[in-house]
Write a protein that binds this DNA or RNA. Structure first.
Length: 475
RNA sequence: GUGGCCGUAGCUCAGUAGGUUAGAGCGCCAGGUUGUGGCCCUGGAGGUCGGGGGUUCGAGUCCCCUCGGUCACCCCA
């Protein structure tokens, strides 16, 4: 039997993996700037954590959790989302200073049939802010999400927001909605006809023509909001507007987790192909901390689907801030025509000096090594030949930019420090140096100096990716 | 959990109405040419035709089952 990754999982391989690394680093930097510390929680938790937080009536808990027993017989689950873990962590640590603001990224697990934009192991980036009721935190959280996506260059975005009210006014609304749906029951689609008691709001989210028709006159949630909830929602909308963040109030935005209260929001992008086009979403969960055994604590957060985000970046050739995976492309390729020893030392010396180096292994022909060098897109080849090695020299040869002039060994060796201090560039005339193009032989101890002072600065800092799935030149 | 489409070399695919040792392009490896690499030329390696069963003298090609991929429903990131 062939071994394969499990259904709904996949390997993230280069160059895409480099894009992931960039996105995650950028996200972390953004969050750190806004005071959201990085939090790591276990990838599995006591099953209770999710049952209590996410809610027993949700699909996630009912049929999508990866549950297992460890050898002691305790019941655990792979996390289907992160908020529950963050709240558990908050209660466990009881931070003395509020708000407690954290960000995270990592894999989540849901047992669903995979499709475009949906996996069984998928990755989320997210933030949570606990301990603030003021609407300004809602706006902060939403704006961090919005700005991050804008910064990456995602376009065609729609931000939808809604308010679900608090425990009390929500109940009033649900009762009214439920009564309304009972009168329309026969007109609903098959899937919802018998389910209106479980979670009436879901019917509003249904995309079938039947349900859309039938719910046309449904009671508006907004009209049932109590005064504090309405004031809160109004404040959020006003502040978002003042910040120039475009949004639409979507009364039908119902998110799938039980814990949401008041503000909920979701950002989708028309760039994403397929049915799963939500890039990220979130909302308030003011009652959750208390429900899980902690002190009454208002809270809000969001999560972003990483594979959908990366996918959107790939589709969007108009990305403003583009990414590069030049991390993968070596600057230097060491061609070893000698006996490995000098090449090993040179390779180590270069990587220790923060240069990206590659080489071939085994005694391969010069032709094969140069072919590899070419394929690697390295800019410079450093050739370690036996004769040169005996004289403590190597040959430096630009592969891509042959117009770059190289100092000859004698003149370069004479005033290495001068060259460094002058910050020589290829285009500069370098008084006192004899130059040649093509290639040059220099002392092995001067390679790093030559690369730093002349060659690397003269080269482009990054390259255009040659893959159609990923884009861009670094900024 | 339900449904549609698909499953031949590393990748993209051809494979005639079922018939001798299953092909191409790209990639890979070696050699030639070359400014020690990129172009070109020559040669080479590489496939249990997803797996199992059945029909047949004979199946990659037909039938059944199964596994996997993909898209959609449900739901969500």
């Amino acid at each position: 039997m062939k071994l394969k990754s499990p259904v709904g999982t996949r390997d993230i391989v280069a160059p895409e993996s480099w894009i992931w690394a960039k996105v995650i680093a950028e996200f972390s930097r953004n969050c750190g700037n806004a005071g959201y510390d990085w939090l790591l929680t276990p990838i599995f938790e006591d099953t209770q954590v999710f049952q209590r937080a996410v809610g027993g009536s949700t699909d996630i808990v009912q049929k999508e959790m990866y549950d297992f027993q460890d050898k002691s017989g305790r019941n655990f689950s792979l996390r289907p989302e992160e908020t529950a873990s963050v709240v558990r962590s908050f209660i466990e640590h009881r931070p003395a200073v509020l708000p407690w603001k954290v960000h995270y990224w990592g894999p989540m697990f849901r047992y669903e049939r995979p499709q475009a934009g949906r996996y069984r192991q998928f990755y989320q980036l997210g933030i949570e802010a606990l301990g603030v009721e003021d609407p300004s935190i809602d706006v902060e959280v939403i704006s961090i999400l919005w700005d991050f996506l804008v910064e990456l260059g995602i376009t065609s975005m729609t931000l939808r927001i809604n308010s679900l009210g608090d425990a009390l006014c929500r109940e009033n609304y649900l009762e009214s909605l439920h009564n309304f749906l009972l009168t329309k029951q026969t007109s609903l689609c098959d899937a919802h006809r018998d389910r209106i008691s479980e979670n009436p709001q879901r019917v509003l989210d249904c995309k079938t023509q039947q349900c859309i028709e039938a719910t046309r006159g449904a009671p508006e949630h907004y009209l049932f909001l109590c005064d504090p909830c309405r004031d809160h929602f109004e404040a959020v909308k006003e502040q978002l507007g003042a910040m120039g963040i475009p949004f639409v109030h979507d009364p039908r935005l119902v998110r799938g987790l039980d814990y949401y209260t008041r503000t909920t929001f979701e950002i989708s992008s028309g760039i994403l192909e397929g049915a799963q086009n939500a890039l990220g979403g979130g909302g308030r969960y003011d009652g959750l901390v208390e429900e899980m055994g902690g002190p009454p604590t208002p809270a809000i957060g969001f999560s972003i689907g990483l594979e959908r985000l990366v996918s959107a970046l790939g589709f969007d050739s108009a990305s403003k801030v583009t990414l590069t995976y030049s991390e993968k492309i070596p600057q230097i390729f060491v061609v070893d025509l000698a006996q490995r020893g000098p090449a090993n030392l040179l390779f180590r010396e270069l990587r220790r000096n923060n240069m990206r180096v590659m080489c071939e292994y085994g005694r391969r022909s010069a032709k094969a090594q140069f072919r590899s060098a070419d394929r690697s897109q390295a800019s410079i080849a450093i050739i370690v030949g036996q004769e040169e090695a005996d004289r403590q020299c190597v040959v430096v040869r630009p592969l891509k930019h042959k117009e770059i002039l190289l100092p000859l060994i004698e003149s370069y060796g004479k005033s290495n420090e001068d060259a460094n201090m002058q910050g020589l560039k290829a285009s500069d005339q370098i008084p006192g140096f004899q130059l040649q193009s093509g290639q040059a032989e220099i002392g092995i101890d001067k390679v790093v100096g030559l690369l730093n002072s002349v060659l690397l600065p003269a080269l482009p800092t990054s390259r255009v990716a040659n893959s159609t799935s990923v884009i861009g030149i670094g900024t």
